[in-house]
């Protein structure tokens, strides 16, 4: 009955990077979608920095976990539309400076959020450059309509 949740943010399951504000030839943004903490995307200067993860179909997000270094402030937004536009805030978190150890952002929206695209914005860093090692998005493919839509309409 209980099935372990799937990580939707894997290139191998069709997720891709729609855009990123930094591009290092050896540390491209796609490396946040390979499920590996050893590989990473490196920002190349200035803030804010951001990247957009696009899923093959709409998903219902229940939890987001991001591993990074030197990030001071995360802002995460979701877009339901086919084109990556009309983003709405999903959550934000101020991070602690863990020096050169991985920081973990963990966001669990109160209500499951439907998203085709997720935008991860780094508003500030603890140093001039930051790295993002892995993005994990737990959720279900498609829109869990029976559970969520009536609730949203009533509230």
């Amino acid at each position: 009955m209980v099935v372990p949740p799937d990580n939707m943010a894997l290139a191998s399951s069709g997720a891709r990077i729609a855009m990123a504000t930094s591009e290092h030839p050896k540390h491209p943004p796609e490396l946040v979608l390979d499920g590996n903490l050893k590989t990473f995307w490196m920002s190349t200067g200035l803030f804010p920095q951001e990247f957009v993860v696009t899923f093959p179909t709409q998903i219902t997000v229940s939890k987001i976990i991001v591993s990074s270094m030197k990030v001071a402030q995360w802002n995460v937004e979701a877009s339901k539309t086919d084109k990556p536009s009309s983003f709405e805030p999903l959550g934000d978190q101020a991070m602690e400076d863990t020096d050169n150890v991985i920081q973990t952002l963990s966001l669990a929206p109160k209500e499951p959020v439907v998203a085709r695209h997720l935008r991860f914005e780094i508003a500030r860093g603890f140093g001039p450059f930051v790295s993002v090692h892995r993005v994990v998005v737990y959720g279900e493919r498609g829109v869990a309509e029976a559970k969520n839509v009536p609730q949203a309409a009533e509230s």
Partner: peptide
């Protein structure tokens, strides 16, 4: 100096990342 600083940060992060599992 900016380039050198970047390479230094990249080295530190690469080293830390290589020790992940």
């Amino acid at each position: 100096a900016s380039h050198e600083l970047f390479e230094e940060h990249l080295r530190i992060i690469s080293k830390a990342a290589a020790e992940m599992h």
